[in-house]
Amino acid sequence: MRFGGVVAIHNVDFEMARGQVHCLIGPNGAGKSTFFKMITGQLRPTAGIVTFADRTISGFRPFEIARLGIGIKTQVPKLFDELDVRENLWLAARRRKKGAAANRLVDSLLDELQLAPLADKLVGRLAHGQRQWVEIGGVLAGEPSLVLLDEPAAGMSDAEVDRTAQLIGSIKKDRSVLVVEHDMRFIRMIADHVTVFHQGQTFTDGTAQAVLSDPRVRDIYLGKSFRHDA
């Protein structure tokens, strides 16, 4: 992905398995957000292709990609603060379901995300972590088979991080999850596989244990310089 003379993503060959929590990490400016936008159709790759479920989706518009089964939760929750939790989820569910089917989907999401005790609470009065969980519910209301989460643990307390990790463990039973995150404790809790981006390229990938114990990955976050192929 090029922006004029700036190369934001270069020579990335990325593959993700079904039913997996795959974490994408790297320092600020590594190209993670640009990569997400390429997957969801917000950006069209300058070169190369994006495929999903054996179908090339490069050039598809965001709503077309969403209909194919890719849902994304961005860093900033996009919720209706003046409505309660159930109403927010119902509005999201109405994109795919009608009438009683939408209500059944909302009830299912409230149970899956353990939000039933908050169902009648105004979203604008919820804690930060609770708002994040409601937005995850809104994404799941689209019934995606691949869920993209952009820094879901950012700004959360330790207890909220633990709860979010549990929720992601529940989500992956029926879906694949791709997570951009900086919280290493959180990553260790949820990741089946980790890919590290550095300077717009794939630096390394593997199991969470192998990648997070790699001293080169630590050096990237500390800003130490070295050759990419070292």
Rank of each mutant, 00 (worst) to 15 (best):
L146T: 05
F63P: 03
L91W: 01
N103E: 08
Q75C: 08
V134Q: 04
G71T: 13
N103H: 06
L146I: 10
E135W: 10
A92V: 00
P117F: 12
L105E: 14
I136V: 03
E82R: 11
G129D: 04
P77F: 02
Q130E: 06
K73D: 15
L115C: 03
D81C: 05
E82D: 09
S145K: 06
G155H: 03
S108M: 08
D150C: 10
R95C: 02
E82G: 15
D107V: 02
E112F: 13
L140Y: 01
I65T: 12
A66D: 08
I72H: 14
Q75W: 10
W133D: 10
A153W: 02
A116R: 15
E64L: 10
E82T: 13
L146D: 14
S145A: 14
P117E: 12
L140E: 00
S108G: 07
V85Q: 04
K98Y: 01
L110Y: 02
R95H: 07
A66N: 11
A127W: 12
L118S: 03
W90C: 05
L110K: 02
R125P: 09
E143A: 04
G124L: 06
E87W: 05
A127D: 12
A153R: 12
G142E: 05
G124Q: 04
L113Q: 03
E64W: 13
D84S: 06
R67Y: 05
G124A: 08
G155F: 04
D81S: 10
P77V: 05
N88V: 05
R94L: 01
L118Q: 09
G71P: 07
V123L: 14
L110R: 10
R131K: 15
Q132D: 10
D111T: 03
Q130Y: 06
L68Y: 07
I70G: 14
E87A: 12
D81A: 10
G129M: 10
G129W: 05
V147H: 11
Q75P: 05
G99P: 00
L118G: 04
D107W: 00
P117D: 14
L91R: 04
R86H: 11
L146P: 08
L113W: 04
K98Q: 02
A102G: 00
V139D: 11
E143W: 01
K121Q: 13
A119Y: 09
I65E: 11
L148H: 07
I72T: 07
G137E: 03
L115V: 00
A92I: 01
A102Q: 00
E143T: 01
V134K: 02
A66H: 05
K121P: 03
Q114F: 14
R104H: 03
F80S: 15
R86G: 15
Q132G: 11
I136F: 03
A66M: 08
E112M: 11
Q132A: 15
V106I: 02
R94F: 00
K98T: 00
K98V: 01
E112H: 06
V85G: 06
A100N: 12
Q75I: 14
R94D: 00
W90N: 04
Q130H: 11
Q75T: 10
A153K: 06
L83E: 14
L79F: 03
L83K: 11
L118F: 14
G71C: 03
E112Q: 07
S145C: 11
T74I: 08
S145Y: 04
F80Y: 13
G129V: 09
